[in-house]
Design a binder for these strands. Structure first.
Lengths: 227, 227
DNA sequence: CATAATTTTTAGCTTGTGCTAAAATATATC
DNA sequence: GATATATTTTAGCACAAGCTAAAAATTATG
């Protein structure tokens, strides 16, 4: 419906879209610093400063020198539309084209900038309007709103608690593969059998009675909800 | 950073790819003039001259000033890989996402520059390795070779001849729609009932006994093979 | 074949997006 | 509060691709 494509307003450049997504990803709700954005995008800090000026000019971010940047209403909507595209594309690649979790990311990163809104909505339909992608991350609605996510890291769960995996952090392919191989994927039900304060190790048991022992970093990469 | 980074060698820019496809499309086998390319891409002639220099530098075209440009072996392979992507994507959009013939073109034009080779081959598999797209155009093989096309324009058929539609010219959406509405699509069998030299009008009858009378321009937009 | 028309190239400018090095500001530490 | 460290900005530059206007080469016409 709206948006860049159908109403003939000129499209945002790939770079512009990358910055919006970076600001959204890095400054969750609040504001993002030049350095954070620069690292997230692997771009020199000076380039970020430069681009933030332009983005403000375009009305996509609010920006005060030396104080970081945050998304305007419009910038936020654009960012979430990107996230919607990204997650729907990932879902398609994983479920229908036989991609592995490692292969998916790079492809979606490129395609999200190329597909139209028409494509996106047709794809959503084709996929049965999923509410979450295969990582368990919620897929924003076409209007740029997103379901609140109330999952906590498994690391924060208490012994004896019963939980359901809602999401696995996507940032590291190795971590993703580790969990995938052990069936620790979104939807999986677990019981927390032990939590050790000293080293942050946490032990869980799945529905088939298998135990898994996770060090602190791994336990912070799985997000769970009460079950 | 211009669209770079992926499988192995650095990617060609979208512009570069557009030029290669234009040279392929415009100078079928032979060479393409600055003006032809300029018109095909809606770009100023001076910009074409400029780009042809760069493309030669990259080893993708052979170019002599004032004499036009032609694709090198490598340029030709790249162009055909693009065509393969384009036609597979079109097939997917039409067959699985419910696109109309009008909507398809623009989307494929953007996506062909964004999808990886992995995506392309997975998609081909998903579609059952089709040899032709829904327009009847042959889909080049992954190695950049393409089946010879021996279809002639319907305009050249003789009265009484039995033919099969092999392809409909894609250049005009209106023409496409006209034929689509009447079921004159690739695969359709026809009998030529009349050919009129004076005005080039040609009449055909389809398998259901419907007659169609086509003026010369339309008769030159449908390509047929002997049946 | 000389001149007119067309096509192509050259020259010089613009915009978007990146970079580095140096200067300015903010934050942290003594 | 003064100074050291870290972050951010400014200034100046590069490169891909586009543009226009003027010059040059090619092709067509009388």
């Amino acid at each position: 419906m709206n948006g860049v494509v159908s109403e003939g307003g000129s499209r945002l450049s790939v770079s512009t879209e990358d910055y919006l997504k970076a600001i959204w990803a890095v400054g969750r709700g609040g504001s993002a610093s030049t350095k954070e954005i620069s690292e997230h995008l692997s771009v020199a800090p000076a380039s970020v400063t430069n681009m933030l000026g332009r983005l403000q000019e375009m009305g996509l971010v609010r920006y005060e020198r030396y104080r970081g940047a945050s998304l305007t209403e419009r910038g936020y909507r654009e960012a979430l539309r990107l996230v919607r595209k990204h997650r729907l594309i990932e879902t398609f690649l994983l479920e229908h084209l036989g991609y592995s979790w490692q292969e998916v990311h790079e492809e979606a990163e490129r395609l999200e900038h190329a597909v139209s809104d028409l494509f996106t909505e047709r794809l959503a339909e084709y996929l049965g309007h999923p509410g979450r992608d295969p990582h368990g991350d919620p897929i924003p609605a076409p209007d740029g709103t997103m379901e609140r996510q109330e999952a906590r890291p498994l690391a924060e769960a208490a012994a004896g608690e019963r939980v359901r995996i809602s999401r696995v952090d996507q940032s590291s392919p190795e971590v993703l593969e580790y969990f995938g191989e052990r069936g620790l994927v979104p939807g999986r039900r677990l019981r927390v059998t032990e939590t050790r304060k000293l080293d942050g190790v946490i032990a869980v048991e799945d529905e088939e009675g298998n135990s898994h022992t996770l060090g602190a970093p791994l336990a912070r990469s799985v997000f769970v909800e009460a079950d």
